[in-house]
Structure formats: structure tokens, C-alpha cells
């Protein structure tokens, strides 16, 4: 029985550590796939240290604005009763607005989700979407190939896809019409967008 208690404590601690490690915005701006797998098992003593350090200047425009970083820090995720009760007590206040189906969720929280940088032979593409509930309300290209012909192509792609009334918001998905003459940029845009959508889901 003692070992079961250890195991349960380990589960709680491990989950907390993983979430904190991922939640801390100061984690290195390297793509997640390049992190050593070993870090999964190690409960992160390094997380607070990372957080305390000033944010390293990232090479690309970072998608996460500063205020959000602090938001992720405050609720210490203790995945047990405390988190549950806190949420349940606050919930009944909202019940009047509650009985609605999922698809038409009220615009409770706007979340911004940033896709990864996708590189093609003309430059980098990175997309950020704003999600309200399960709906995409805005889509912005943080980075597109620039300069000369590439810049012109990028402008056409941006005009077709981005914005609150662009194709992304209209279609609510990453299957978009390819902009003729800008196949590579269109494709990279869709890739970054798809990744962002997967995250948002």
C-alpha cells in the first residue's frame, strides 16, 4: 500500500512538473521536437530557474505576448481536489448562460495560438490564429517571405487568407485554395495554420 501512495504522489508530481515545464514561456525557443526526450522523466527543478531568467531574445517574433506568460504562472496546477473545487465553485455563477451546445460556444475567452515556423525555399512562414471557444475569429501571418517577387507573392497570400474576413475565418479550417503563382508560400501557410489548429483543439 505504501508503494501505491508513492506511485500516486509520483503521478501528481510528474503531471504537475510536465505541465509547468511546458507552461513556462522561458523554455528555449527551440522546436519542441528537438528537446531531449530525457527531460520527460525528470521532474523539473530547472523550471523555476528558467522562469526567473529574463526571456532570451528569440530569433523570430515570439507569438506569446508578455501578459499571458504571467497568467500561465499564477495558477499552480495541482491536478487534484484544489483545482477541481476552485473551478466548480466558480461554475454555478455562469449557469444561466450555460445550456448551449458546443458548436455555438459563447465568446468567453479569446486565445491566440501560434503555429510553428515553416521554412520553404523563399523564406519563413509563421501563422497566428485567434480562437474563441472552438471558432477561429482572426488569423495573422507573423512572418512571410519578403523582398522582391517573394514579397509580392506574400502580399497576395496574406490578402487572401489573413484577417477577420479572410479565407481562414470563412472556412474555419486549413484547407484553403492555393493562391496561384504562390504555391510554396500557400502551402507553408497552410502547414503552419494546421499545426496551430491542432494545438488549439
Amino acid at each position: 500500500m505504501r508503494r501505491a501512495l508513492f506511485a500516486i504522489t509520483g503521478l501528481a508530481a510528474g503531471t504537475t512538473a510536465l505541465v509547468v515545464l511546458k507552461g513556462s514561456p522561458a523554455a528555449t525557443p527551440v522546436a519542441a521536437g528537438e528537446l531531449p526526450a530525457g527531460t520527460v522523466a525528470v521532474p523539473g527543478e530547472s523550471a523555476p530557474a528558467n522562469r526567473a531568467a529574463t526571456r532570451p531574445p528569440s530569433a523570430r517574433p515570439s507569438g506569446t505576448p508578455a501578459p499571458k506568460a504571467s497568467a500561465s504562472r499564477t495558477p499552480r496546477p495541482k491536478p487534484t481536489a484544489s483545482a477541481t473545487t476552485k473551478a466548480t465553485t466558480s461554475a454555478p455563477r455562469r449557469t444561466t448562460a450555460a445550456p448551449r451546445t458546443t458548436t455555438a460556444a459563447p465568446p468567453a475567452t479569446n486565445r491566440k495560438v501560434t503555429g510553428p515556423v515553416v521554412t520553404n525555399e523563399f523564406g519563413n512562414v509563421q501563422v497566428q490564429i485567434t480562437v474563441s471557444g472552438t471558432k477561429i475569429v482572426n488569423c495573422v501571418a507573423l512572418e512571410l517571405p519578403s523582398g522582391g517577387q517573394s514579397g509580392q507573392r506574400s502580399d497576395r497570400v496574406d490578402a487572401a487568407y489573413s484577417g477577420t474576413s479572410g479565407q481562414v475565418v470563412q472556412r474555419q479550417s486549413a484547407s484553403l485554395d492555393t493562391v496561384s503563382g504562390a504555391t510554396y508560400t500557400s502551402r507553408s501557410y497552410q502547414q503552419s495554420l494546421q499545426a496551430a489548429l491542432d494545438q488549439a483543439r
Binding site: S24, A37, T64, P77, T114
Partner: peptide, 30 residues
């Protein structure tokens, strides 16, 4: 480790903003 690894690889660092994200992430891990 292999069971939790996909979550780790799929979640970019710093993408968990707000309590809802944190709860969902912890729920996925468990």
C-alpha cells in the same frame, strides 16, 4: 515515457496559457 512522449512533442513550450489550458494539458497527461 513513450506513452507521455507524444504529448510532450505535440505541445510547443509556452503554449499553455491560462488555467483552462493547464487543466486540459494535465488531463491529457493523466
Amino acid at each position: 515515457a513513450a506513452a507521455v512522449l507524444p504529448w510532450w512533442l505535440d505541445t510547443p513550450p509556452g503554449s499553455l496559457a491560462g488555467p483552462a489550458d493547464l487543466l486540459t494539458a494535465a488531463g491529457r497527461i493523466t
